[in-house]
Nucleic acid binder design. Structure first.
Length: 137
DNA sequence: GCCAACGTTGGC
DNA sequence: GCCAACGTTGGC
């Protein structure tokens, strides 16, 4: 099992939208690093859902329900999508400011590679953030 | 294959 | 609205 994090600008697609939709196609990724991460996702992997621009916090955990396939928003075969479904909502969102201030969590790719829209999360980071978010898996 | 110019992302 | 970080493009 691997752990990931995706960013979304809430005015475009928020965690609430995902809860309402029950599942969504994660499309529109046009960055090779992010694309490679999408390709590495396995069914059942857990994915933090982060609100960028507004909120600046991790708000939920989604689950990979379908592994990568051609991104339906383009005919260029370089780009892929996965399907995500909501899994758990964090009782207490974990903010970027908090992560940056934590000597352990500041190593997370979300902080280190701030422009990457799909990033990796280690198991330890994942569990720590779940604890902070008061969410039980 | 290097690197300057430029564009984009996203936090502040 | 600014700017740092970083990816991409294109000339050489």
């Amino acid at each position: 099992m691997n752990y990931w994090l995706v960013k979304s600008e809430p005015y475009k697609y928020s965690w609430k939208n995902l809860l309402k939709d029950k599942k969504t196609t994660w499309d529109g990724v046009r960055n090779y690093g992010a694309r490679n991460n999408l390709k590495s996702m396995k069914k059942g992997d857990l994915v933090f859902f982060y609100h960028s621009n507004e909120g600046l916090e991790i708000v939920g955990i989604a689950k990979v329900v379908k592994e990568f396939f051609q991104d339906p928003t383009t005919t260029e075969t370089a780009w892929v999508s996965v399907e995500l479904a909501p899994y758990k909502t964090l009782k207490k969102p974990v903010t970027l400011a908090f992560l940056k201030n934590d000597s352990f969590l500041k190593e997370i790719e979300l902080v280190r590679l701030s422009r990457l829209s799909v990033s990796k999360v280690t198991e330890t980071q994942f569990l720590k953030i779940c604890e902070l978010g008061e969410v039980t898996l």
